[in-house]
Simulated assay, not measured.
Amino acid sequence: MFDIIYVLEMTGVIAFAISGMLIARSKNMDPVGVFTIGFVTALGGGTLRDLIMDNHPLYWIKHQEQPILILCMAVVFSYWHRVERIRESRILLPDALGLGVFTILGAQLALDLGHSWFIASLLGVMTGTFGGALRDTFCNEVPLIFRKDQIYASISFAGCWLYFACQWLLENESLSLSIGVLFIFIIRLLAVRFDIRLQRDRRPVQ
């Protein structure tokens, strides 16, 4: 198979690293802070996944080009002054893309290691959301996954099951991966655009 998995991994790393570095710059962090936030955002979820599944060496240790790429991006983001003009709200696109990519790849790896669909879906959600949760926590923000006005982890969970269904019905790994990633990416954007939530505050009876 054309290495679509590796292409998706690098796409996810870049997307999540961008989302982390944008917030880091908005918080006036120095280059070390920009690299740290970009690193934990891009690789935190995969690290947790590998530790839980006892999958060693950790993926980013085996593929050192990923942290090297993040380091190069951190240098650009720290010294390219135009980055300061990018509003923090612009993290939506890279964050949604990173969520989709890492959720599906996390679930796919769990299946390859022999885990059930349900366990694979939980590991996929962890892979897709944990890096962003670390990013927001380190930047003194309420993580997106915990915000009542956001639909986030549930989209990731649903995307895993769509991926499983496509894999079972289509028997085409590349197409199933692509459908799962695109579903999460598009639904996440639509959820923000149309303010879709799992729960809304109840208005007091007058």
Rank of each mutant, 00 (worst) to 15 (best):
V13E: 05
Q199Y: 12
Q108K: 14
T127C: 13
K62E: 11
G38K: 11
F118A: 12
I196K: 12
M73W: 08
S154G: 04
A15V: 00
A110M: 09
N172D: 13
I196L: 12
L134G: 05
L69H: 11
R135N: 07
H63F: 08
G45D: 03
R87H: 15
M29I: 00
A153M: 01
I68N: 03
L175H: 00
R49T: 02
F39W: 06
F183T: 08
D95W: 07
L92K: 01
L93K: 03
I186F: 14
F16S: 14
L105I: 08
H81F: 04
Q66H: 11
L97V: 10
H115D: 01
D195A: 11
R87I: 01
G100H: 07
L144A: 12
R85C: 04
S116W: 05
I187P: 02
T129A: 14
S89W: 03
D54K: 13
S26G: 01
W60L: 08
W168F: 13
V125S: 09
F185G: 07
R193S: 09
V76W: 11
N55F: 12
A24M: 05
A165N: 03
S176T: 03
Y79E: 04
L189D: 00
V32P: 00
N28Q: 14
F118Y: 14
D195N: 15
R82H: 13
R87N: 11
Y163P: 06
V75E: 06
I187T: 10
H81V: 10
G124A: 07
I196D: 01
T47S: 12
I155A: 08
P143F: 03
I151Y: 12
L177E: 00
G44Y: 03
M21R: 13
I179Y: 08
Q167L: 15
I52S: 11
F130M: 14
L71K: 06
V7S: 08
S156N: 03
E84P: 10
Q167H: 08
F130C: 07
I70M: 05
G131K: 02
G44W: 02
G159E: 05
I151V: 10
R147Q: 07
R135I: 00
R197Y: 09
A17G: 05
V32N: 06
L8M: 14
G114V: 01
I14R: 08
L69N: 07
C139V: 02
Q64S: 09
F77I: 01
H63M: 09
A17C: 04
A74G: 06
D195P: 08
M53R: 09
V125P: 10
L99E: 02
G98V: 00
S154Y: 10
M126P: 06
V142D: 04
S174A: 15
V205G: 09
S89G: 02
A110H: 13
L134H: 04
R202A: 15
F164P: 12
G114N: 02
L99S: 05
L109S: 13
T41F: 09
D3V: 10
A15Y: 04
A96T: 01
K148A: 11
L113N: 06
W117A: 14
L177W: 00
E84G: 12
R193N: 06
N28A: 12
S178L: 15
L175S: 04
A165P: 01
L177D: 00
G106C: 11
I68P: 03
T11A: 14
V181D: 00
E141C: 05
G159R: 14
